[in-house]
């Protein structure tokens, strides 16, 4: 019984990996820059924000380029994966109606794909960290944060992808919501000494992931409370997402 359960999970992960590989291939097919597009988007945002805020906000925050890049790439991971997953089930309607493969793989593959492109972005972060003279070891401690972020994002993706088939508007709402959340999360500014913003961000999971990553990479005090909050948010979110997806997936084939 246990063995067949693990076998199932292994099969599902194998399939997810294969789907991620294929979707990379599709994206690169017939495009000149291919993989580079994964970097260009966050890099352009980073460059622009750095140009806009370096003199003003940047003077108040130490190591502002690192501070900014960490925020940009973490939020980019979340935004890319969730936006893509909101339509993942609907886009594969024909396949879902004719093959009984583990539906979770459609969503997990999106996370795999985004982890891979996030690793590419990390290379740039590493270069920047070293160029600013910050300790390199932070990168190793960054990986657990990435894992928590991936778990949290997976949960959100499960919730979004299964609810969108009942209400297509959700895909549009989510795009808008992501933009709001981007502004609400301290990505290019800081909430230090702004009690009102700190209050609001207490309920913003992305705040904890971004802050934790900064505390690890930059010479800041690591706050255990943030770690606990990040673990709490990611586990609760995955549990809700998993439950919802499993309840609704049996209806996918006839709803889409």
């Amino acid at each position: 019984m246990m063995l067949s359960f693990f076998n199932k999970i292994k099969k599902c992960l194998n399939l997810s990996f294969e789907l991620a590989r294929i979707s990379f291939k599709i994206r690169n097919e017939g495009s000149f820059l291919g993989l580079a597009w994964y970097l260009l988007n966050p890099l352009a945002a980073f460059g622009l924000l750095l140009f806009l805020f370096f003199d003003n906000l940047g003077s108040q925050i130490d190591y502002y380029p690192v501070y900014l890049l960490v925020g940009v790439i973490i939020f980019n991971f979340f935004q890319q994966a969730t936006t893509e997953s909101s339509l993942a089930v609907i886009d594969n309607a024909a396949l879902i109606r004719s093959v009984n493969f583990p539906r979770e793989a459609l969503i997990i593959s999106i996370i795999f794909k985004n982890i891979f492109s996030h690793l590419l972005e990390l290379v740039i972060l590493i270069v920047l960290v070293m160029a600013m003279g910050l300790p390199f070891v932070g990168i190793i401690y960054y990986l657990p944060v990435l894992l928590l972020l991936a778990i949290f994002t997976l949960g959100v993706c499960f919730i979004l992808s299964s609810l969108t088939i009942y209400c297509l508007d959700l895909a549009n709402i989510w795009n808008f919501f992501c933009r709001l959340l981007w502004l609400g999360t301290p990505i290019f500014y800081t909430v230090v000494d702004q009690p009102r913003l700190i209050m609001v961000n207490r309920f913003n999971p992305m705040y904890y992931f971004v802050s934790l990553a900064r505390q690890i990479l930059m010479p800041l005090r690591l706050e255990i409370g943030y770690g606990v909050a990040a673990i709490f948010y990611s586990l609760v979110c995955l549990m809700i997402g998993w439950f919802l997806f499993n309840r609704l997936k049996r209806k996918f084939a006839e709803r889409i």
């Binding site: 099969k11 194998n14 399939l15 294969e18 789907l19 294929i22 291939k25 599709i26 097919e29 017939g30 594969n92 024909a94 396949l95 109606r97 004719s98 093959v99 493969f101």
Partner: peptide, 22 residues
């Protein structure tokens, strides 16, 4: 509709469909 993708080669498609079939 076993997951075949128009823009990919037959080789890739065989791997894709095969994985979907388990």
């Amino acid at each position: 509709d076993i997951g075949l993708v128009e823009r990919l080669t037959m080789r890739d498609n065989i791997y894709l469909a095969g994985s979907l079939l388990g």
